[in-house]
Write a protein that binds this DNA or RNA. Sequence first.
DNA 1: TTCATATATTCAAATATTTCGATGTGTATT
DNA 2: AATACACATCGAAATATTTGAATATATGAA
Lengths: 91, 91
Amino acid sequence: MDNKKIEKISRALSDTNRIAILQEFKKKKDCLYCAEVNDLLDLTQPSVSHHLKQLVDADLLVPQKEGRNFKYLLNETVLNEYIACLNSLKD
Amino acid sequence: MDNKKIEKISRALSDTNRIAILQEFKKKKDCLYCAEVNDLLDLTQPSVSHHLKQLVDADLLVPQKEGRNFKYLLNETVLNEYIACLNSLKD
DNA sequence: TTCATATATTCAAATATTTCGATGTGTATT
DNA sequence: AATACACATCGAAATATTTGAATATATGAA
């Protein structure tokens, strides 16, 4: 994982709304529906859409279309790679 | 560690210049001098000062005055706490 | 096909970040 | 004391981010 990718993931994580989205996966088992994120955040629908896009663009979330709904999966592989980069800072 | 703190650390990490500073600790043994950071980055001194401030404000670096020089230590405790928060997203 | 629902996109305003030149502050050297 | 050095702060310009209103697109239901 190069530094541009680390930068992008860090930026995706640098917003409490987006952190709250990721933490919601702890309560939900596997996936999170777009509508659930709209309920979770105190923001309009376009703003929520914007935040979800940041997380998807950083590959932290994987979107899946389901009829006219969207659901998101947490990309643990990318999260683990990011964590490994942070751990490597410590020698 | 609350979400505001996670946001702040993530933001501190969301810049390739600051990532490069942290990675420089891998080459250096224990601490990094301000002058070394000035040499490392292709930026003016005020810009470097700004980036170091972001890292210090996020508690990722601990500044130590040494005469008229400044040296920085990596705060592994905070880095570990941050990594623990990220790991907890996966449960 | 028509209508309603779910989500994305566009646009603009407000705010935040990055950068650098100029300057300030503190410390060592002479 | 005068000067030089190391770093911080200020001010302004350029750019990026966040937000919401308006609108577009895609899908399912009637």
